[in-house]
Design a protein around this nucleic acid. Structure first.
Lengths: 211, 211
DNA sequence: CTGTGGTAACTTACTCGCGAGTCATATCCC
DNA sequence: GGGATATGACTCGCGAGTAAGTTACCACAG
């Protein structure tokens, strides 16, 4: 009986890309802690040592996954931030962009907000860096709104920022838990919710996302 | 050298209570996954097998901890729900009660909302039961507000409920991350934030918590 | 009031499985 | 032949769970 070892004619770069793709899904769907390297190898149809050859360690592979996911999400946040909208309109635009970006690869979200991710090492650094950038973006928006509302207390602003990020996350998470809802329908829902809570939205909000 | 075995004159019930207390802190502060039974035994100044004698398994111990914590939090939610407040006033009362209940034992919160808790078994059942009860309570409040606002869409109500729970959780979490803020100061902060976002609060909200 | 047996409280020193990480080796292509 | 691609079969540590034995307390017989 012949061994299964030996090249299969797949170049390293291609194999790395394939492993990365499989790993992103696995880490994103099951979480870092619940995913073993053997799981990923099996899902990719290769053996465990190949992953170690190419990525060094489980954490090294995770770091690359996280960087990829963070870049994807960050690109979307940045794009939204460059529209000339403010306040709730800006929020709606950002949510709408995120729904569209996540539709083909919903696991990317949980990959970035994985509570079982390691709390040190390269992947942790990548996440911290992403969170810092995201924080700045969110803090700008919230800070301005608070100033407009006449509240300049630092603690209040900090807490409001935390609440806003949490609202954003819960809307995305709710959508991820209801996969039958299209991105457009979810954006409409967000507009309705904001209208219900804050009163009718500025026309700008609807216009910004083409409603 | 003599062995260390043998009773130390501590009755089973007392020892169980002591282990439970130590375990609640450990699970609540580090999370279920990151806490080993040996850690708990060491923190309690006893040996691992004693825990197995009394609680059967790590998960069995966790189940008792979770039940204890859920009962504590639930008692507080129920108490708040029996006040004759509605809308934002009710929210403020509930937050205020939770801050006061958590002040002497802040780890109880993360014990209940631990993302690394097991996803089956007795402790999972206890958490599901708690969440179901909590869900009903929250759904009532949110549903009524949505109806008053003229929105009866089931999906909208479901999403709003998710957002409200997330807002509640993020306010508590923010407070837990700022231990220098007293419960009373945090309640004041919540009142200010709600006022900033929704306009001035009904006097009822302030009166309900004695401001 | 003093042995004495039974039981509850307690520990030391293990087993066992799982998953991260490694080593030696095999096959293929140029 | 030599380097890139690949794998089977390991080691190793950690944490859950256990078997077997040790000590202190207590009820009761003498």
């Amino acid at each position: 009986m012949t061994s299964n070892a030996g090249t299969k004619g797949v170049a390293r770069a291609d194999r790395e890309a394939q492993i990365l793709d499989v790993a992103c899904r696995a880490f994103g769907e099951a979480g870092y802690a619940a995913t073993s390297v053997a799981d990923i190898a099996e899902a990719a149809g290769i053996s465990k040592p190949l992953i170690y050859n190419y990525f060094g360690s489980k954490e090294g592979l995770h770091a690359v996954c996280v960087q990829h996911a963070a870049e994807t999400l960050w690109a979307e946040f940045e794009r939204s931030s460059r529209t000339d909208t403010v306040g709730l309109a800006r929020a709606v635009v950002t949510l709408d962009g995120m729904f569209q970006a996540l539709a083909p690869q919903p696991w990317m979200w949980r990959l970035v907000f994985d509570p079982t991710a390691p709390s040190d090492g390269a992947s942790h650094e990548a996440l911290l860096d992403y969170e810092r950038r995201l924080f700045t973006l969110g803090a700008d928006g919230v800070g301005e709104l608070m100033r407009l509302a006449g509240n300049t207390d630092a603690g209040d602003t900090s807490a409001t920022h935390a609440v806003w990020e949490s609202v954003f996350r819960s809307l995305v998470t709710w959508w991820l838990d209801h996969p039958e809802v299209s991105p457009a329908a979810m954006t409409d829902r967000c507009i309705r919710l904001f209208s219900t809570v804050f009163g009718d939205l500025d026309e700008a909000a609807r216009a910004a996302v083409g409603r």
